[in-house]
Design a protein around this nucleic acid. Structure first.
Ligand code: MN
Ligand code: MN
Ligand code: ZN
Ligand code: ZN
Lengths: 141, 141
DNA sequence: TTTGATATTGATATTCATTATCATTTGTTA
DNA sequence: TAACAAATGATAATGAATATCAATATCAAA
């Protein structure tokens, strides 16, 4: 998907409909800058509209990914998390194995080296996930 | 786990028992150098001993990870794969999004930069996963 | 407006990998 | 060999992700 800047634009481009459920879910998700699981976002959105269903939250997150406004992160544990994508930005993650803290980092040198590695193996690079696991200052014994 | 060099050594250290099922599974797994799913290894081990159960294959792979003789890889798709770890070696992966081909790569500069990034964020680095997704030469249109 | 084609919703069912359970069998040590 | 802890394998449970479907909502055209 070529990313339009807004969810509304995405819906239009795709011939999809605007609903208050989608609006509530998307605006809450984009406003908070968290790495949400579906369940977490579902629970929090319940406070805004208790009628919103789990499936709708799940489907809307998938739409956000397709729109280029969110990405999926799968850290250890096997639960998918979704985070919002800021226009033209990219980052990878540091994850604390004890408290679960997630820190975002950017490192251009690593990015460049990844491109080089892909080239060396005759790969057309489409995406990558670089996750560093460890212990944050508070959790180190 | 401080990694002993052999599975037998690991079992002894832990007070676990040596069984022909474990022997069959482990020797087959270590001999083949593949990124196995539990199901794949289960199917292939059936040819050696059709009585071996799925649960035993799963449990044995978990033991191999604990012994430091295997690692789990979770590429996109959400199915866990296990690969054998060669003494003192480390590598990351390139994955073809079309045919699923998995290529291993080593890049010391990336490794060093990851250590640096962790340090800068006051993290004690324990592990990392760096996966590059793209299209191999055969799958590029 | 009203209509009607089509998309969406939300409750629920399904799928499927992973993990737990437990009666039975096996390995190890004395 | 006996004792007993651990392992096995069939099966059940779990839980996230996804599919289903009747009821409802959206929206462009009339
Ligand atoms: Mn990156
Ligand atoms: Mn690495
Ligand atoms: Zn921490
Ligand atoms: Zn390929």
């Amino acid at each position: 998907m070529s990313s339009p800047k807004t969810f509304q634009g995405y819906l239009q481009d795709k011939g999809l409909k605007s609903t208050h459920q989608r609006d509530d879910i998307v605006s809450y998700f984009l406003q908070k800058s968290k790495h949400f699981t579906v369940k977490e976002l579902y629970r929090e959105v319940q406070n805004i509209d208790p009628k919103i269903g789990y499936a709708t939250v799940h489907r809307t997150l998938k739409l956000l990914v397709d729109a280029g406004l969110a990405t999926e992160c799968r850290f250890s544990g096997g639960i998918t998390r979704f985070e919002s994508v800021k226009e033209g930005e990219h980052h990878d993650h540091l994850v604390c194995l004890k408290c679960g803290k997630i820190i975002e980092f950017e490192n251009d040198k690593i990015e460049q080296l990844q491109i080089k590695v892909a080239k060396e193996h005759n790969f057309t690079l489409a995406d990558h996930k670089c996750v560093l696991y460890g212990y944050c200052s508070g959790c180190r014994e």
